[in-house]
Each structure stands twice: as C-alpha cells, then as structure tokens.
C-alpha cells in the first residue's frame, strides 16, 4: 500500500522544468497529498498565472506517479492562498545559489552575487528569462545573473 510519505518522496524527485536543480516540493507548488476514501488527491498551485511551466509540471507529476505504479489519483489545481516565494525551501535557496540564481530575499533584491559573493550589484530589469526572475549584474565580477524575485 502506498503511503502519503511515499508520494511526497516521489514528488520531491521531480525537477522543476525551468530550474532543474530544485524539485517541485522545494519550489512549494505541491500544496497537498491527501487520501480521499478511494483515491489520492495531489494539489498543485501555479507560481505565475501565465507561466508555461505550469502545464509541464502537471504532466511531470502525472507521468512520475504513473511510473511508480500509482493509478488512483487526481491532480487538483488550487490558486488560493496564492503561491509565494516564501514557500521555496531553505535548502532550495542554497541549490539556486550554486546554480547561479540569486534566491529571493525580503530586501526585494539579491543580497550577494551568486558567483563571486560581492554585494556591489545593480538591477538591469525587473523581468527575466522566466516570469519568476529579474536580471541583475554584479559590478565586481561584471557577470549578469538571474534573481528569483519575490511575490
């Protein structure tokens, strides 16, 4: 018999389609795994409303659970309460940094360059390669980098 723990563990192996170093569980988009009398309900929440990764995430979850032999489940979308960058796990912050993306920070901007750790930074644009990121540049090493912006 599959346990809730098993499902959470399988989900934590599914990479985010855009940022593969963190998992869907790290990202905080898995809002619940519940047994509803005769089937599992997996509740997901989108990051940004228009993020194309949302569709891919649903598909990845569906495929991964079927690969584990799970059949009696449904994937439910939930938008309230709205996803926030506060739900990204602490462990994921470090993984993002190592991948070259400055993690979200309450200050509203990155605290240090993910490459050289300098705090001499400038914002290029509040928008970046995906809806969730902004473009910044380090004035010390001159490298541009992505910042995971807070919402």
């Amino acid at each position: 018999m599959t346990s809730e723990q098993d499902i959470w563990s399988w989900l934590s192996d599914i990479p985010d389609p855009e940022i593969p170093v963190i998992s869907l569980v790290d990202l905080g988009v898995v809002r619940g795994v519940e047994w509803a009398s005769d089937h599992w309900v997996i509740t997901l929440t989108p990051t940004y409303t228009g993020c194309p990764a949302t569709t891919v995430i649903n598909l990845s979850v569906d495929t991964a659970l079927r690969d584990k032999g799970l059949e009696n489940f449904v994937i439910k979308q939930q938008i309230a309460p709205p996803w926030t960058t506060d739900w990204i796990s602490t462990a994921a912050h470090e993984k993002l940094r190592q991948y070259g993306i400055a993690p979200p920070s309450a200050a509203g901007g990155p605290t240090a360059c993910p490459r050289c750790a300098s705090d001499d930074l400038e914002r290029i644009s509040q928008y970046g390669s995906t809806p969730c990121k902004a473009q910044w540049r380090c004035r010390a090493c001159l490298e541009p980098f992505d910042y995971f912006k807070c919402i």
Binding site: Y48, Q126, Y127
Partner: peptide
C-alpha cells in the same frame, strides 16, 4: 531587456485571461 519585460507582461495577462 524591454522585449523580455513586455513579453513577460503579455504572458501574465494571458494567464490571467485563462482564470
């Protein structure tokens, strides 16, 4: 940068339209 910003904004609006 503006091309990226304006396209991202467009994407937000299309997402909101779906809702």
């Amino acid at each position: 940068e503006e091309d990226i910003a304006i396209s991202n904004t467009a994407l937000d609006f299309i997402g909101q339209t779906q809702l």
